[in-house]
């Protein structure tokens, strides 16, 4: 019986394995050939592209921008998302489903459409900037096109819905009775948050933060559109180098570096999750 199920597994496994192996090996191999431009590559198997990456301040700066924007976006996603996740997880009424539906719609609608909305909201003579300048909070319009804050806001729209759903599942593992117990013993709300919920959620939140950070590291669309050709993250550079400059091997090298950093962070979060499971800190 179980052997038969092994046979059922075989065809999709072979197909998936071929796709993973073939697609990844081709570009990884390409990354080791010198880039001669216009899609041409050198003859020898060399590390040229990698040394170019490590010595060219433009590429290193892109790596730094990627890390910086991803870290900021992950942080803000947690700050905005955690209270919402908590609210939904602890809600007893039918409204919880409506609130969840709002989050799910936001994760399902493609980021390109959301970027269009963002551009209207933050346009120089748009509703937000005009009202903020009228009240006197801003002296000049806050725009998000072609600067780092724009990229961070775009990344947050990419991750926030997913982040809320993730944190929601973390908070659901914390029994409500623990909060009640703390409250009965005289802790006020703030103290309950600080001494009960926060410590219990911390492991799950840490792993979630790493996952969100990783999503941002690999995010292309929002970074490319809101970066407006002035802010370069690694995913934006990969597309640009390949499609516009036709440097196939250099693009492959950038992609390889991105892939390796993302997988390293993933392994770290899997490792942390294992240790937490072993310590019974999370019930996933």
């Amino acid at each position: 019986m179980t052997a038969r199920w092994g046979l059922v597994l075989l065809p999709p496994f072979i197909f998936s394995f071929f796709l993973v192996a073939a697609s990844q090996s081709v570009f990884l191999e390409l990354s080791f050939f010198e880039d001669l431009g216009l899609g041409r590559k050198g003859e020898d198997f060399v590390l040229d592209n990698y040394t170019r990456f490590l010595t060219d301040s433009f590429y290193l700066h892109a790596l730094w921008t990627t890390i910086k924007t991803s870290a900021l976006a992950a942080l803000f996603t947690l700050v905005l998302g955690f209270p919402v996740a908590y609210l939904i997880a602890r809600m007893r009424s039918q409204w919880a489903m409506v609130l969840i539906a709002g989050i799910v719609v936001a994760t399902f609608v493609t980021i390109v459409i959301k970027v269009y909305g963002l551009i209207v909201i933050f346009s120089a003579n748009g509703i937000l900037n005009r009202s903020l300048m009228e009240i006197g909070i801003l002296s000049e319009p806050f725009t998000i096109f072609g600067n780092v804050s724009g990229v961070v806001i775009g990344l947050m729209h990419f991750t926030l819905g997913f982040g809320v759903l993730l944190l929601y599942s973390v908070i659901q593992t914390i029994p409500r009775s623990l909060e009640d117990a703390a409250a009965i013993h005289g802790a006020n709300r703030w103290r309950v948050y600080r001494r009960v919920i926060f410590p219990l959620a911390l492991p799950g939140v840490t792993v979630g933060a790493l996952m969100i950070f990783n999503m941002c590291m690999g995010a292309f669309t929002s970074a490319a559109l809101l970066g407006g050709g002035r802010v370069f993250t690694l995913p934006v550079l990969v597309q640009r180098v390949v499609m516009m400059e036709l440097k196939f091997s250099m693009g492959a090298t950038l992609a390889a570096i991105l892939l390796v950093s993302v997988i390293a962070i993933n392994l770290l979060s899997i490792f942390m999750l294992r240790r937490m499971k072993a310590a019974h800190l999370v019930v996933v």
């Binding site: 073939a22 697609s23 292309f220 995913p235 990969v238 597309q239 492959a252 991105l258 993302v262």
Partner: peptide, 20 residues
């Protein structure tokens, strides 16, 4: 192996399939 594509940033998948 089945989960691998989720670990790979989409942009990397894009260039990987193009080169393939």
């Amino acid at each position: 192996v089945f989960r691998a594509p989720l670990q790979i940033p989409s942009i990397v998948t894009g260039i990987a399939f193009l080169q393939l």
